[in-house]
Amino acid sequence: MNNDSGWVYTEQVKQHFLNPKNILTISEEEYKPDGVGIVGSPACGDMMMIFIKVKDERIYDMKWKTYGCASAIASTSALSEMVTKNGGMHIKEAYKITPEDIIKELGQLPSHKIHCSVLGDKALRAAIEDYFKRRNEQNPYREKTSSPIVCECFQITEEDIKMEVLEGATNFETLQERTKIGTNCGKCIPKAKEVINKFVEQYYKDKVYNPKS
């Protein structure tokens, strides 16, 4: 962090923010992507679209659009460079990129920024899924355990909720206090309540499971 420059994040974030690479500047129709992935929503404050072109299972070109803060823009830009350098990354590897991989490219990010602004890996996976879907093929690289997202704003999955329930969050209010689930756009609240009730029913019925014991 260099305070003298009046900049709050790392130099890498600044460079990507000021000179973002691989933005989609033409329409999607003109670009003709082989796969498109979208994550987030305007209500969440972050939304990303990733467009990929694939040949021989390599992503030889990737373009993107991002609505979000400086680190959201910088992280998508950094991801686009990671994916497209040296003739393009193989889909198998691209599918496995994690937020940590992207953060490494950016030097570092404040922890509160990671969940909300590093969505590029998820958008890329969505684009890869779309690529296979368009070809009517099964994605051979999909992780079988990937858990569906309940709260888009904070990227909270069913698995995350299950873990909170097992750690003693037995009602929606406690879950919300711990995870902020549904505190932004609120769209997911009914679904989140349904999911937590399912796990509470599963683990706490007849008080068989006691997290304190």
Binding site: P42, A43, G45, C69, H112, C116, N184
Partner: peptide, 22 residues
């Protein structure tokens, strides 16, 4: 914006006015 505060929550004042986080 939520991003600037560290709390990840947008301004309560603008939410009170418009009810729309965006």
């Amino acid at each position: 914006s939520a991003c600037s505060t560290g709390s990840l929550e947008p301004s309560h004042v603008l939410m009170a006015l418009h009810k729309k986080p965006e």
